Every structure is written in C-alpha cells, then in structure tokens.
Simulated scan of single mutants.
Amino acid sequence: MDRPLAFNLLIPCYNNREGLVRALRSVAYPADQFGILVIDDGSDEPIAQHWLQQEIDGPVSVLRLPRNLGITAALNAGLEWVERNRPARYTARLDCDDVCALRRFYEQVSFLDEHPEIDLVGSWCIFREPESGYEYLYKTPTAHDDIKKGMYFRNLFIHPTVMWRASKQKYPDDFPHAEDYGLFQEMLKEGKGEVIPQPLVTCALDPNGLSRKNRQEQLRSRIKVVRHFGENKWLTSLGVVKLLLLQYLPYQWVLRLKKIL
C-alpha cells in the first residue's frame, strides 16, 4: 500500500485572490508528499482550479461552496473532503495573506514524526500590519503542561501556524469566531500539544479582518470556551475575568500589550 501523504493544507478563501496567491507561493515541501485544498467560501468571482495552477506550481485542489457559509462551515467541509478524497498523516492550516517560513512544513512534519505522543503542534509567529509596517513577535509557552495552563487565558495556538494528526476532527459551531480555540481545547482534553519556539508564519493584521470586526462576539465565544473546557475552577475564573476586561480595552491597546507580553 502506498504511504499516505505527509499532510493536507487547508486554506479557506472568500474574495481574496491576491492574498490566496501570496499565501500559496510561500508553501514549500516536496510536491508529491502533500496536498493543498483551497475552500472557496462562495467568493463573488469563483476560484477556478485552472487559474490557480497558472499562478502557482503545486498540488492544489479547489472545493467550491455554493454560497458564503463562514469559516467554520468552510473548514469542516474541507476536513470532510480530504478525509474522503486525499488521506494524509497530518492536517495543517494557513490563511490568505499569511506567509510561511521556508522551513515551516519540514519542521512541523519532522516534529510530529519524531514525537508520536504529541497530537497538535503550533509555532511562534510574527504579526504584521502591511500598510503601516508595524509588527511584533508573538511568543507563547512551548511545553504541554505550560500550554494547558495558558489556554485558560488565551489561545496559544495561532490558527494559521498549526498542524495536527489527522483523524475525524470537526470544528465546533457553537463558538462563533473562536472555533479554533474550541477545536484545540478539545484536542488537548485527550492528547498533547506543543509549540515550536520559532516564528514559522508571518500573519497579516487586517484592519478590516473578521477578528477585528467581530471582536466582541469572539471574546464572548472565548469565555464560553474557557467555561466549557475549564477543569480548574480557579484558573477558569481568572481566565473569564481577563476576557471580560478585554471587552473594554481598545483594540490598539491590546496590540501593544501583546507586543510587550
């Protein structure tokens, strides 16, 4: 039997063709050992397979959704598609406009191959505002036990940096705009996660992005995640208090605090 692909890379896209190409061109790995699935979440101008193959040289497929369903439904559709059509050992994520370091996928595949006890791996990242040039290095704890504690206060796995062991995962749909936080907490209930202490992805800070537009709803969902998965009452209470306070802080203040902390 042929050895399965190393990983499938899921990239959702909605009306961002330029950002999609920018992200795809940063992906480096032997072409016969992985696959890319672009989930076109009902873009006004459909993303066609032949157009993408003219723009990039890589193993890319397109799953077109009939209308804009949102990132949670788009990612779940992508997970179902790769499970049926292109099994792989691992699943990885990337977003439009985000750029991978040259060694990202080599590092993460090697890490999971060499650490069978780890189910989920992320990395540090650089957040950058393309217009202003403002950027900062986002660092988190790296070891599982420290991550478990830290997850009461923030999502230590930045979504476009992660790779995990493929199984029948599904993003929860009851934590709007925090679906990744819920998924990773679910993984950590039974398995282990670690973070590679290198900035393997540069993530674009978009002033019109979903996270900023839906910040209040995202914070409410994060509170639900902490309450749902929290096992330590004291840490759960502290995490909820922190998130409640963040609802009253201006977004620019939060960015500056993240750079300092």
Rank of each mutant, 00 (worst) to 15 (best):
D2E: 12
D2H: 12
P4A: 01
P4V: 02
L5D: 04
Y14S: 08
N16T: 03
R17H: 07
A23P: 03
S26D: 13
Y29S: 10
P30G: 03
P30D: 06
D32W: 05
I36A: 08
I39R: 08
G42N: 10
E45R: 11
P46M: 02
I47A: 01
V60W: 01
V60Q: 06
S61C: 03
S61P: 01
V62N: 06
R67Y: 15
L69H: 13
T72D: 06
A73R: 04
A74C: 00
E80P: 03
A88H: 10
R89N: 14
Y90E: 11
Y90I: 08
T91H: 14
D95E: 12
C96E: 09
D97L: 00
D98A: 06
F105V: 04
Q108A: 01
F111E: 06
F111K: 03
F111T: 05
L112S: 04
E114Q: 13
D119G: 15
G122E: 02
G122K: 00
W124M: 05
C125E: 09
C125M: 10
I126T: 15
R128P: 09
P141D: 00
T142N: 06
I147R: 02
K149N: 10
M151H: 00
F153Y: 14
N155K: 01
I158W: 13
M163Y: 05
A166I: 00
S167L: 06
Q169I: 15
Q169W: 14
K170I: 07
H177Y: 14
L188F: 07
G191Y: 01
G191T: 10
E194P: 12
I196H: 11
P197Y: 10
L200V: 14
Q218A: 15
L219M: 09
V225I: 08
V226S: 02
R227K: 15
H228C: 14
W234Q: 08
L235I: 09
V240A: 11
L245D: 05
Q252C: 04
W253C: 12
L257V: 11
